[in-house]
Structures are given as C-alpha cells and as structure tokens.
C-alpha cells in the first residue's frame, strides 16, 4: 500500500472508531436512562393510584361511619317530635324524605368510593352487587361468569374491581352495547378476566394515538401496577373484547 492509501485507511479507521464510540455511548446511555425512566414512571403510577385508593377508603369510611349514623339520628329525632299542626307535620315529612335522599346518596357515594362488599365478601360478590346496581339503572344485559374462582390478594382485588368498573363504564358510555359478558377464571397461576360486548367497537390504534381515552389509560395503568397484560381487541362494528392476565404470585 502506498502512503496515500495508508493515510486514506487511517482516516477511514478514525472516522469508524469515532462513529462507533459515539453510537455505543448513545445507545448505552439511551438504554440506561430509559430503564430509569420506565422504573420511575411505574413507581409514580403506583404511588398515585395507591394514594388515590387510600384517600377513597378514608372518605368512604368517614361517610359511612361518621356522617351516616349522625344523619340517621337526626332523622330519628325529627320523627320523634310530636306535632299537632298539619302544616308543620308536612314540613317534618318533607324533611324526613330529604334526609332519606341524603342518606341514600351518601351510601351511593360511599359505595362508589369503596364498596363494602369488596372488603367483606371479596371480588366476586362485589362484582355481582355492582352489576345489580348497573342493571337497575341502564338497559344493558350483563352476564357475569366465574369459570374458576381464584384467590386474589386484597390489594389486587380493588384494582381488578376498578378495572371491571371502568370497562362497564366504557361499555355503557361509549359502546352503545346491548349485551356485556364478563368472565373470570384462573389458569397456570394467572388470574384471567375477559369481557365481550356487542357494541359499535372502535379503532384501537386511533384511539390510543389520539390520547383522549383517560379510561383506557387508567385501565393500562392499573394493569401495569399488577404486572398484568391488558389486551384490547376492537374493530368498528364488531364489539369490544378486553382480556386481562395477572400473575397471582
């Protein structure tokens, strides 16, 4: 090789080495920072949802245990007043009805914040109760099937319940469905949840890119929190299927 070729190859060598070093540094730092970013994001979601659930629980308990009994006592006291005047009696009756409405609303708010049944009887009963509530208010035929009852921990139960709530909410609000099937089971150490509706469906990719679906984000966040995999299958005119797989261990 002549001196020109040697110089030429040296130049090539320097360019290649420098490019390699820059690329390697870029890729390694990218991997490291992305790892840290994913970890931080997961921790942030976990903290946000946990704080939210703790706060909901506290408010639900306060409503149920503190304000509830006081309102009941107020109603009892009002009813025990002896009145001879008919006009006053009407006012008392009206007040009693208002109090009943307040107590019912308060119970509903307390239930929405945290269903008592979930704490006392577990996920399956809580879902049954929630479905009964939805069925009484909306024209949606909901079928709930438990193919195999699995033992989900209390911490996970609340998130699964919220996911089911969110799915039902989405079905009522957006899907325009007449029928919703919900099934839960256990397979190979995994909790499985499947829902299927006959609604109008949507373009999943578009919806995700539009960044509009807060509900979808919430479903994904909770699934992530449980180290689960959430699969959403939907196409315009073909209904929507959700499939959630959560490791039980």
């Amino acid at each position: 090789m002549n001196p020109f070729e040697k110089n030429y190859l040296n130049a090539v060598f320097i360019v290649v080495v420098l490019t390699g070093v820059i690329l390697a540094y870029f890729i390694i730092s990218l991997v490291r920072f992305h790892r840290r970013y994913v970890k931080l994001q997961k921790e942030r979601i976990f903290a946000e949802i946990t704080i939210q659930e703790i706060e909901r629980k506290r408010i639900a308990n306060d409503l149920h245990d503190s304000i509830g009994p006081v309102l009941s006592a107020v109603k009892l006291n009002i009813n025990s007043i002896e009145i001879n005047n008919e006009a006053d009696q009407k006012i008392i009756d009206k007040t009693g009805k208002y109090l009943d409405d307040i107590i019912a609303s308060m119970r509903q708010i307390s239930y929405n914040l945290l269903p008592n049944t979930l704490e006392r009887k577990g996920l399956v009963e809580a879902v049954h109760e929630f479905i009964a509530q939805v069925n009484s208010k909306h024209v949606l035929d909901i079928h709930f099937m438990v193919l195999k009852d699995s033992r989900v921990s209390r911490e996970k139960e609340i998130h699964i319940f919220r996911i089911i709530q969110e799915i039902m909410h989405n079905t009522i609000k957006h899907a325009g469905a007449k029928k919703l099937q919900i099934g839960i089971s256990e397979e190979d150490g995994n909790f499985l949840l499947l829902t299927k509706d006959d609604g109008k469906g949507f373009d999943v990719q578009k919806e995700k890119l539009n960044f509009n679906g807060l509900g979808l984000k919430s479903l994904e966040s909770r699934s992530e929190l449980l180290n689960g995999i959430l699969t959403l299958e939907s196409q315009p005119g073909q209904g929507t299927n959700y499939f959630l797989k959560i490791p039980l261990s």
Binding site: H143, M145, L147, Q181, G183, S185, E187, L192, L194, K196, T231, E233, F243, K245
Partner: peptide
C-alpha cells in the same frame, strides 16, 4: 401474538 387462552374459547362458547 395475542393468543386468547382456552378460557376464552370456553367463555366464547358459553357466550
């Protein structure tokens, strides 16, 4: 590929 487990098939049949 997102494979629906056997559970799905059982469920789908029931549906």
């Amino acid at each position: 590929q997102k494979n629906w487990p056997d559970f799905f098939n059982t469920f789908a049949k029931k549906v």
